[in-house]
Design a protein around this nucleic acid. Structure first.
Lengths: 348, 348
DNA sequence: ATGAAAGCGCTAACAA
DNA sequence: TTGTTAGCGCTTTCAT
């Protein structure tokens, strides 16, 4: 068995409780005994047992992070690595550990979260996604368990601390960018319609069209999964429209990559025949041929702020509910151009 | 306070230890009382407290994973997401949780590992890298703490369970592939020379050259970090050689991407002027223009097997030390060709 | 400023 | 087959 607080106490000739106070650096212990105790700890190579401490103090200093189910897809997307990067920075700074839960099905995931929460494994939880009617979110909310969501909660927005982009605005700007280039037939390729990020971006897109008096064409809106195949399927569907769009708002780089693949294969020129703007600005956007104009949403920062917010929530009894909006910005590359007069008038 | 084992015991009219045995599904409890106890648990919505269980049983059912320091670079590389994917599958199947440690410096990382280990936070550890003279590995080994490394340990290979590819063979085959195409001036762009993966691949490269009686040119060997800039710097250096290589073995996709970028910018044709073969076969390899011939090392499987091996180690008193080799395979795309007679004879 | 002692929720050895 | 009891290593009242 390892060195315990008792061993230290014995060597330093004090009570275990005194050692405990020294660890917590209680001001009620004289510098003198603090020094003695610390020397004893040093000499014995003592390290506090976190589990015991957790049990006694009812706090673990670990944060649980919940990936969406079907995490297979999620792992492939650069979003995952970046958000974890940010989370791990934020957690490490405050000396919190990170624990991960995944599940193949929603129910498996739910069980995992329940174990984390009721098992007392974590002090708080960060949801890496936000969707409509999420059982897990309801569970956390009902139990009043501390949590933060990355993305905008679908309901009770005012009561849930979350870190998000202004996805409505970002999509509106992206769409306006296309409109300003002269596009009128603009397609929208979004993720699952049950994700709030998709809903917000779709609304931004619609608003921009409305403001410019462009009639919304429901046939121009496609929902697919956030991976390459999703983008491919989406663009194929869009190309089957009697009048295909000349510009596409694609809400994920990996999808956009699929879009580019398909168009390239069909020898459709980007940006002269179809313009594309993507979201997230992962390395893929830069690597694509042509390089994609993309909206950078600063994913690392999203994770970093989420970790910090949760920790504040945990450490401050009555920390208010917060909404943190991470700014986005447009990175212009070479996937957007004015619609070719030829083509657009040709078809009409 | 939440429902405890005592509450259940009271309701079911048994002793707490009986409830504990029911949880563990001990065969020494009658089906009858099992049923009664389970009903009580159900009725109260009882969930066992993992922390208390961990303290009493001295086992946490959590696995610690250690990223290399300078994890900033590591997070960017698709290797990270894939290996975590595999780890999380392997851990979840056996109902283990995953906890992550990162650090900006080696010392910070070391402290983190010490906390995990001595703090009793984890039952075992997986190192996601393998380097020469690793303090952390020595620490784990000295304390006899269960761990598994992904990659080949530099020392005591026979005494440390690890999951690896046959990197020596993979690089040898890659090099032979180039030789068979007719290349004689073959460059090697590897990662840090303190990583065993680099060492193994370099040795495989050298062996292939030797077997084909091609004289080793130390100027053709470059070491850089596993990211794009690394690849760019490396290829620039190689191009400054009086006789630049006509083929490149690049031990990482992201680096290869940098190589391709630089060559493309300089209007050097791939594969006609320079052939490239990369490692890992991430999406980047496929996306690159031209698409890269690459060696797929099955990173997800690496993670999956690592998790399983560690769990076996933890659950079986005298599980033997194991070395698991994940097969690799060559994926041929369009970045390799025979050296142009013109160019190679021209220069010589 | 320090010590004694109870207890966090569970497991496991020992009894019965 | 089940109950009793003593910890696991720490924190935290309550005394002193």
């Amino acid at each position: 068995m390892a060195i315990t607080i008792k061993d230290v106490a014995k060597l330093a000739n004090v009570a275990p409780s005194t050692v405990s106070r020294v660890i917590a650096n209680s001001p009620r212990i004289s510098e003198n005994t603090k020094k003695r105790v610390r020397e004893a700890m040093e000499e014995l190579g003592y390290h506090p047992n976190f589990i015991a401490r957790s049990l006694a103090s009812q706090s673990t200093k670990v944060i649980g992070i919940v990936l969406p189910h079907s995490s297979g897809v999620f792992f492939q997307n650069p979003f995952f690595a970046e958000v974890i990067h940010g989370l791990s920075e934020g957690a490490r700074e405050k000396h919190y550990a990170l624990q991960m839960t995944t599940g193949k099905t929603e129910d498996e995931l739910y069980q995992g979260v329940m174990q984390m929460v009721q098992g007392g494994r974590v002090d708080g939880i960060i949801l890496l996604y936000s969707r409509i009617d999420d059982k897990i979110l309801s569970y956390l909310k009902d139990r009043n368990f501390p949590f933060v969501v990355i993305g905008k909660p679908f309901e009770s927005v005012e009561q849930i601390t979350h870190v998000d982009n202004d996805n409505y605005l970002a999509a509106k700007e992206a769409t306006e960018y296309m409109i300003n280039l002269g596009h009128k037939k603009i397609g929208f390729i979004g993720g699952s319609p049950s994700l709030t990020v998709t809903i917000d971006r779709l609304n931004g897109y619609k608003e921009a069209l409305k403001n410019s008096k462009i009639k919304l064409n429901e046939n121009y809106i496609i929902h697919e999964e956030f991976h390459r195949e999703g983008g491919q399927d989406a663009v194929m569907a869009l190309l089957r429209r009697s009048i295909p769009p000349t510009a596409l708002i694609v809400t994920d780089d990996l999808m956009a990559l699929g879009v580019v693949n398909s168009l390239t294969e069909m020898q459709i020129d980007i940006p002269n025949e179809v313009s594309i703007i993507s979201f997230n600005n992962a390395l893929f956007a830069e690597m694509s041929r042509p390089p994609l104009t993309s909206i950078d949403i600063h994913i690392v920062e999203l994770g970093y702020q989420a970790a910090r917010s949760l920790i504040q929530l945990l450490e401050n009894e009555n920390e208010p509910v917060k909404r943190i909006i991470i700014p986005h910005h447009l990175v212009v590359r070479h996937s957007c151009a004015s619609p070719s007069i030829l083509i657009s008038s040709d078809i009409e």
